[in-house]
Design a protein around this nucleic acid. Structure first.
Lengths: 246, 246
DNA sequence: ACAAAAGTGTTTGTGTTACACCCATGT
DNA sequence: ACATGGGTGTAACACAAACACTTTTGT
């Protein structure tokens, strides 16, 4: 939605413009990471109209010969300075209400990107003004966001929260090597709830394929040295780790 | 993909065709129902190229001023003779690989539609040739389907199977009033696995908000009269009813 | 010595499975 | 009488919550 420098190559496509309506298609991103033990999302400030000065999800037009997923990765690199290996990316949902962008008919394929220690976007970014926001603040004040991006953000956050339960997605928020306590703080930050360290440890080390011990220990974080782990091969988490109900 | 009678109204939209590429957007449907205790999907036969004679998911172009969900409901009515109240509809996923349609760049928003006793599509249908197929046969022989529709169908079936576990979606396959045994046969048909009738009964009647008794009984299906139920207000199913593992 | 975090053990309760058993109808 | 499906009871087991307790570091 912010990067409009590419040009159309309609001549390449054998299509009859009288046969069907033409849409613009964008790839927009809900990029989530943890900073200071809180869930943060990346937003870019809009320069021009509409919604000038408001904040929006990073994203932009999909190119004619570009796969949807490739477009998401490209925008991630251009607007967030984030490479393919730095995040886990999954398709979220597609938004296409007729007047969600007052300029024209835009269909937005939204993607969810999760990563650990993602960089401050000022460095090497396409977008002049971009920053991380606490997700809790954004959800509490949806007016800050342009278009229907508050809804997209809320859908992305809920997807992330739900997937922590029955998938191994939480490791996407961790560096290559991490302790069980660090993994627990991921769950606690995303869910906004405290978990019992003892029960969490048992569940997470018992789930097959979730974690593999490196053999090394660390004392970062203080206290007794903790075993370091890497993410295992499993993607599904059995049995699941459920959110506390109330 | 089959209905190409609408015309473009580009003049209505204030857009600059040099600023971004133009895409065609379609709404395609994975319509599932139960017939003869087996999961069936609706397909239409393609008349023209490409993939002439092959079978495809029902669907068509989204109109300029039309919401994506409205387009899905419209195609459902035009190609399947199914009204809004007859199905539960949810967005599945969006498919947009550059050459998935050799004619032009098409982005397809796929929808999952589940209903009970859906009509034979010959009556009152737009599509000349349309019929129900056993899902098991289609999944076993993906070549029968045009474009990437075998993948879309497989994604839709997997979504339906997964959602039966932790949502009340199964009632979408049932008529307004149904017995616990009929609901169980839904689970068995969608999952392709036998369930213990006694334990199923307990789980399903114990899950809060899933079923409400009508007070009436029926003897259809033989045996002792069974209580009739309607779908309750709940959408989430707690505790979930999990698929048998092996 | 003390704080802090890691990790283990135990108890108690809840949900699941497997299956015995009884109930109410049609033929 | 018997087959058929509806529905309840129960014992064995897995899992989760809550929490006492030990271990190993830094200060």
């Amino acid at each position: 939605m912010t990067n409009v420098k590419m040009t159309i190559k309609v001549a390449r496509m054998a299509y009859d413009p009288d046969a069907y309506p033409a849409f613009a298609v964008t790839a927009d991103l809900v990029v989530l990471t943890l900073r200071e033990h809180a869930l943060h999302a990346l937003l870019v400030r809009r320069g021009g109209k509409p919604y000038a000065g408001r904040w929006a999800l990073p994203g932009g037009f999909v190119q004619v010969d570009e796969d949807l997923e490739d477009a998401a990765y490209r925008e991630l690199a251009e607007e967030a300075g984030v490479g393919r290996g730095d995040v886990v990316l999954e398709q979220l949902r597609t938004y296409g209400a007729p007047r969600r962008d007052p300029r024209m008919r835009v269909v937005t394929v939204a993607w969810l990107a999760l990563g650990a220690d993602l960089p401050d976007p000022r460095a090497g970014s396409d977008a002049a003004d971009a920053r991380w926001w606490r997700v809790a603040d954004l959800l509490a004040d949806p007016r800050r966001l342009a278009f229907d991006h508050a809804q997209i953000l809320a859908d992305g956050v809920e997807r992330a929260r739900a997937k922590l339960e029955y998938s191994t997605l939480a490791t996407a928020f961790c560096p290559a090597e991490f302790t069980v306590g660090e993994l627990r703080s991921v769950y606690e930050a995303v869910w906004g709830a405290a978990l019992d360290p003892r029960n969490f440890h048992r569940k997470v080390t018992g789930a097959e394929g979730f974690l593999v011990e490196t053999g090394e220990r660390t004392t970062r974080g203080g206290g007794r040295p903790a075993m370091l782990h890497r993410a295992g091969a499993a993607t599904a988490l059995t049995p699941p780790i459920l959110r506390p109900s109330p």
